[in-house]
Nucleic acid binder design. Structure first.
Lengths: 113, 113
DNA sequence: ACAACCCATCGATGAACGTGGATGGATTTG
DNA sequence: CAAATCCATCCACGTTCATCGATGGGTTGT
């Protein structure tokens, strides 16, 4: 089933692994942590589908969570640079951030497509 | 900056949001949680680059973590269905699971590409 | 001016997570 | 057989996280 093994193994001797950039791992994990929550995924999917700004109060109507909790989740999405907001009257509208990095867009489309 | 707002707003009245499947949100969040860790991302990237099976003991040489911790992380990747293992002698080799769902492959390539 | 509403912030509480040590099974080597 | 190595599992500890309630600033409408 497996491809051929890389080398003949010796006990107590480790094989060298491909180099992986730590900074990349840290930042990627940060992005994924922002995404790894059902509520935040649902909000992102709604923004993705709607293609229009959505007010926080609309989420409080659909999701079974308190307003602070929803604001908290949206704050994480904003902190991760995934959404941006604009205030209109007493409402604050959120939408997917314009100009997302290509790598981020690929990840999002993979999940939300 | 914003596109046109969906409707004329009224105080205390929420707009309806696009439907988002809860089961999808739950399972996607599960996959992303498995990925949202720098150590696990590093291990996945190594498997991705190496295109060959890798032994746990190899990671103990590169990563600054104890062997049980590494085994624990790998267990999560396996539990998420991202990797599979095969035992050869005293070593257990891990590799990316064959036949990953298309959506999962898109997410992975977006992150690891 | 007053009341109603929207939203962010803060503190508290309980759950979940990451990490490491210890243990034990399995296998190979001497 | 005895020792060494590889690995998973169990348990415990400390930290982080999610959620809620309360508070207050700011805005709109009467």
């Amino acid at each position: 089933m497996l491809k051929e093994l890389p080398v003949i193994r010796q006990r107590g001797v480790c094989c060298q692994l491909p180099e992986v950039d730590r900074a990349w791992a840290e930042s990627s994990a940060g992005l994924l942590k922002a995404l790894a929550d059902p509520t935040r995924l649902t909000m992102l999917a709604a923004l993705w589908k709607a293609e229009a700004p959505i007010c926080i109060c609309d989420f409080t109507g659909s999701l079974d969570l308190s307003q602070p909790t929803i604001s908290h989740h949206m704050g994480k999405l904003k902190e991760a640079g995934l959404v941006e907001s604009e205030k209109t009257g007493i409402w604050i509208y959120y939408r997917l951030r314009a100009g997302l990095p290509a790598a981020t867009r690929r990840v999002l489309s993979g999940i939300l497509s």
